[in-house]
Simulated assay, not measured.
Amino acid sequence: MSAVTNPATVAECLRVGAGFSQGDRNWIAEQFATLDARLAGFHADATELEVSVKDREARGQKVTLECWVAGRQKIVTTSTEEDLHAALNDVRDDLRRKLNDAKTRQEPRSNKHLREVTQPEIAPVADDDADLHRADAETA
């Protein structure tokens, strides 16, 4: 598996949507920084994150975090936590779980035909067995 030359990071891929301002972007990126390790397996040019909030700081607020990675289905996580920080943590943790689940589904762990197979070592033939094989070959 080759290393990604330009790994995705939250700071590079995050954009703020409805309910947030560009001024909110930095503290949200700091709160989502733990996602960097999980996003590092994807190219920054092929990864996007968008966070938005509906009815911010109201009783029925809803935070949504969307993630697009080229070649994969869009992942959407939501939270209805009343505290904004708690809601952001909730969507962040849910996205991490969903990214891990998606990676696990793509790994060939349970399919032995897709895993790298090592060749078995050939055991040396004992001298007595070699004589028997020669004798069999001569009589055939």
Rank of each mutant, 00 (worst) to 15 (best):
G23W: 00
C13A: 15
V53N: 02
V16D: 07
E48V: 03
A46D: 15
R56L: 10
A11C: 03
L35V: 05
L35I: 05
A29H: 02
A40M: 06
R15W: 01
K54P: 00
S21W: 00
A18D: 12
I28Q: 08
L14D: 08
T47M: 04
V10S: 05
W27Q: 11
D55F: 02
R15T: 14
G19N: 08
V10K: 03
A18N: 14
V53P: 03
G19V: 07
A11D: 13
L39I: 06
A46L: 14
Q22L: 13
F20C: 06
N26Y: 06
K54I: 12
L49P: 07
A33N: 09
V10G: 10
G19K: 03
E30G: 14
A18W: 04
E50P: 03
R15I: 14
E50M: 13
R15A: 15
S21P: 02
V16H: 02
A29G: 07
L49A: 10
V16G: 11
A18S: 14
T34Q: 11
G19A: 07
D55P: 03
G23H: 11
A37P: 04
N26L: 14
V16N: 03
A40T: 06
D36P: 05
A58I: 04
D24A: 09
S21K: 09
E30V: 13
G17I: 02
S52A: 15
F32C: 08
A40G: 15
A18M: 13
Q22W: 01
D36N: 15
L35T: 11
L49Q: 13
A44P: 04
A33C: 07
R38I: 08
E12N: 13
R56C: 07
R56P: 06
E30W: 03
N26G: 12
A33K: 14
E50G: 10
I28N: 04
S21F: 01
E48D: 09
V51L: 04
T34H: 09
F20R: 06
V51S: 06
A58S: 11
S52T: 08
A29N: 02
D45M: 12
L14E: 09
E50T: 13
S21Y: 00
G23I: 02
